[in-house]
């Protein structure tokens, strides 16, 4: 009997989108409120896992054509590169800097290099979680 998961798939299409939005919200508010790269990354990969549950691995791989192992590398590069950027200014490793910018639409915003570091964490967490889940899922 062919099973029918129309309800699951329809709900997933809506909910996965909302989870990703929420995870981005948590990620960007990490400096002033609870949240940050780790929990944001876990929630984003939670959304992808929901897609994996509703569809199968091949479909999800064609929706999101990312090699998660490469994503780990990119994330690490972000995190370490932010720290190493301080080498060029001859200040100790991992020294961060911030300033206020007047951005179009957003108005005055403070941008901090710690966000770049956090982006690295975010990408590594997604990469590691999805690599673990995919390799276990694919192996027979």
């Amino acid at each position: 009997m062919k099973k029918n998961d129309v309800i699951l798939q329809t709900v997933t299409n809506v909910v996965a989108f909302m989870i990703i939005l929420f995870s981005l919200q948590v990620f960007f508010s990490g400096h002033y409120h609870p949240g940050g790269g780790f929990i944001g990354g876990l929630m984003t990969s939670g959304a992808i896992v929901l897609l994996l549950l509703a569809y199968d691995i091949k479909t999800v791989a064609s929706i999101i054509p990312i090699d998660y192992k490469i994503l780990i590398g990119i994330g690490l590069f972000f995190a370490v590169g932010t720290g190493a950027g301080s080498l060029f200014f001859n200040v100790p490793f991992l020294t961060h800097a911030f300033n206020h910018f007047d951005l179009p639409l957003l108005g005055e915003t403070s941008l901090h290099t710690a966000v770049l570091f956090d982006t690295g964490v975010y990408l590594v967490v997604i990469g590691v979680t999805m690599t673990i889940i995919q390799t276990i899922g694919e192996s027979e």
Binding site: K69, I70, I72, G73, L76, F77, V80, G83, A84, S86, L87, N90, V91, P92, F93
Partner: peptide
């Protein structure tokens, strides 16, 4: 001043690079 971290971050960067 960052001299003493070089023996740590040179292998670290290499390891990241080798992932690709």
């Amino acid at each position: 001043i960052n001299l003493l971290i070089l023996p740590i971050i040179i292998p670290l960067f290499t390891a990241i690079f080798l992932i690709f």
